[in-house]
């Protein structure tokens, strides 16, 4: 058999031949964007939290404290990385690396504008889902390898929560997929040119929003790192740059969740007057603002409430929504 005729080889060489420069530029942009975006989001989070609680938030470094997180990042980088004596050394070292890779891979298929997408894939949405499911694995690694009660409880909660909320998340996305007949991010965006999908699928949008909040372990679903009871959950034992990687991953996952929300329900880069990139970024940051707003407004749920809500409310409603979508599409 001629091994060079494999589709995979053709793809790699096509990639190297024509799109190599585009790919290198795209990857560079992602690698620069991920830390900067996280730094910005941490600042936004602290500012929004401050204003909600009627205080100014960070004000010292730069105008309105905008450079605060950069200084914090420098501090984190120069800190000592401590490994607990009884920790599983290899897994303790591996966990922060495993958590950041899927967060970066997911950027490959996100369409920032009609032209700005590193790679269009037939399985775009599925790529994001399958790689973000690796995050739980790394949380478990971190929590278990730390050999610390708080970390382990945090990790165990993360696994239970993620298994529960991944199902309604996928089901709510499926109702969009059967409307567009495509997993391609660009085709889903193109299908929303006159009307956004949130108009047709408001229930799916709400389920999607709640599930992604739970999947990214944000309040009111942040039992994974509940500060008041678990110190800081699965990354209790992490210091310095390793801790920073967990932080980076959390905010990057938030960005990816928000951009999926924008692509699926808010028309992606569609919008009047301004270029697509501006619309996309505005929509994504607006969604992130809502996530932060929710965090500083609602109290944390109890764990049994969280699981009951997922299995007894979210999944049945998502299934019903999917069924109604299918029936309506068939009837039309």
């Amino acid at each position: 058999m001629n091994i060079t005729q494999l589709p995979f080889i053709k793809e790699i060489y096509g990639f190297l031949g024509h799109d190599l420069v585009a790919a290198v530029i795209g990857i560079l942009i992602i690698l620069v964007f991920v830390p900067l975006n996280s730094a910005f989001l941490v600042w936004v989070e602290r500012k929004v939290a401050g204003h909600i609680q009627l205080r100014p938030g960070p004000m010292e470094v730069g105008p309105h404290g905008i450079l605060q997180t950069l200084i914090d990042a420098v501090k984190l980088m120069s800190k000592e990385m401590i490994t607990p004596k009884l920790a599983d050394k290899f897994l303790f070292w591996l966990a922060p690396i495993v958590i950041i890779i899927p967060a970066i891979v997911c950027f490959v298929v996100i369409p920032f504008s009609p032209l700005m997408q590193v790679r269009e894939m037939n399985v775009g949405i599925l790529l994001i889902f399958s790689f973000s499911s690796l995050t739980v694995l790394s949380i478990l690694m971190a929590g278990w390898a730390s050999n610390n009660k708080y970390a382990l409880i945090g990790a165990v909660r993360a696994v239970a929560q993620n298994v529960a909320y991944e199902i309604p998340l996928l089901l709510s996305t499926m109702s969009i997929i059967i409307m567009t007949n495509s997993f391609k991010m660009s085709e889903i965006t193109a299908a929303q040119s006159p009307v956004w999908f949130i108009v047709y699928q408001p229930v799916a949008a709400i389920i999607f929003f709640i599930s992604t909040t739970a999947e990214t372990n944000r309040a009111p679903f942040d039992l994974v790192e509940a500060e008041s009871e678990l110190v800081s959950g699965f990354h209790t034992e992490y210091t310095g740059m390793r801790f920073a990687l967990f932080f980076l991953a959390e905010y990057t996952n938030m960005f990816i969740a928000a951009s999926m929300g924008a692509v699926l329900f808010f028309g992606g880069w569609h919008g009047p007057f301004f270029p697509g990139l501006i619309w996309f970024v505005v929509k994504v940051y607006a969604l992130i603002f809502v996530i932060i707003w929710v965090r500083w407004t609602f109290p944390r749920l109890r764990f049994d409430q969280l699981m009951n809500f997922a299995w007894k409310v979210m999944i049945p409603v998502a299934l019903l929504n999917l069924m109604i979508t299918a029936i309506v599409l068939k009837a039309l």
Partner: peptide, 24 residues
């Protein structure tokens, strides 16, 4: 082998779901 869909499903189901159930 050139089957992106099956590959993604493998990752989603086996790594994301089945390994998680084992952890349970």
């Amino acid at each position: 082998l050139g089957s992106q869909f099956v590959a993604m499903m493998q990752l989603l189901i086996y790594v994301g779901a089945i390994c998680m159930t084992y952890i349970f």
